[in-house]
Design a protein around this nucleic acid. Sequence first.
DNA 1: CGGGACCTTGATTATCTTCAATGCTAGTGG
DNA 2: CCACTAGCATTGAAGATAATCAAGGTCCCG
Lengths: 234, 234
Amino acid sequence: MAVLPLAEPARTPTPLGALLHSFAPLSETERRLICEGLGEAHSHAAGSEISAGAPRIVMDGWAAWARHLSDGRRQIVALLLPGDPLPGGPSRVLGMNHVALTPVRTVEARPLLEAMSRTPGETAGLALAWSRAHDAAQARLVAHITRLGRLSAHERMAHLMVELMDRQRRAGLARGMLMPLPITQEILADVLGLSIVHVNRTLRAMRREGLVETRGNHSVLIEEERLKAIADLS
Amino acid sequence: MAVLPLAEPARTPTPLGALLHSFAPLSETERRLICEGLGEAHSHAAGSEISAGAPRIVMDGWAAWARHLSDGRRQIVALLLPGDPLPGGPSRVLGMNHVALTPVRTVEARPLLEAMSRTPGETAGLALAWSRAHDAAQARLVAHITRLGRLSAHERMAHLMVELMDRQRRAGLARGMLMPLPITQEILADVLGLSIVHVNRTLRAMRREGLVETRGNHSVLIEEERLKAIADLS
DNA sequence: CGGGACCTTGATTATCTTCAATGCTAGTGG
DNA sequence: CCACTAGCATTGAAGATAATCAAGGTCCCG
């Protein structure tokens, strides 16, 4: 049996690298840039607010972009998974803020962005991937609007599960039909615009139908094709 | 009585000019550019789809950015009012499309965009206004998510009325508390994620409370402050 | 072992949709 | 001028969906 070649150092593919690579093929140079050309890291406790003066990237854990109403209601506008950028600028506009949903580790994105603008010739693929990732984030906002406006609770849940599977598969975080889901039902409720009780009942019904299956430590196994059918996705 | 000075030709302020001016003060050169530097015009019949290969600007009438589900349900993601840009690129992504809700007149935006990149020195204010208008559109998407996810039917309607008043006031289309509302209740339902019947009942209740008052030809008079209070807006 | 965070469940109520008519108004062709 | 039609608004009744209220239950951790 041949010994596996070790000349190529085992480069642990980070979620950011995998995610960008899923949007456009990256050269060796670009992949190295993604692994090494990142700024200062920072850890955020679960539940803490992430003040984003400069653009950062989520490396580990889940965060969210949320809006609070004065009576305590909360709507999560977007979930931020490993590999996703945290918009850097006017986050405070309209009562929006970033929250760490689990313990989160982020890094500064500026060095990467500067490298991209400094040597555009060598980072064309990276720029394309970055731009496509941005478009995908925009498309997710639009999908979220449709989900909240026109889908029932079951459909919303199915739709979200499919979205999360796609995103985590791109980032190399899902294996087969199994993916992390490290958030509470209360957070799911704030994403889906439902009450926590109704999220619980919806999940119970879906478990009974064999659509999702909780697998210990904050992971779920999903029946992707059936969920897609329910969510009216191709 | 002094004769009004006529040296300055009466420049009818277009909605586009007024809207951009509301985001950043514009020089005389910039205002002239907005009036004269626009591309080919096109009319679209009510109900027709607007295929946007190149970026265009709505000059008159209301359009929408909509997504259709396979069973006929429809969600309007954004309303496009006079002065608003129609995103030019990947509109077909994810089953999205542009629809004229009333008879609509649009013009090509390219000449204006080219003028901005050709003479950046003379169009700094215009560029700032354009960028802020873009940010505002993004903020509206986020507000729409919160509206659909966490507000009741009454709150949604109030919130939308306040948004439409603000937008039309900026574009010079509202006078006092009176603004155009040239869309059917069915379209309102597709914006707000409600059934047409419930929109009707919600409007009736709001009329009875004196919050809105229909004024003939597709116009409404609103009690802005009370609506803001209902919608949890400052 | 106690406490806290999270999940689960039943009972009740509120909100919203669906179904089915009816009315209203403007445009159309005889 | 007048039926006639189409599109839109309105309303009642019934039913589905989701929220709220109120208890437990489970699990982990100090």
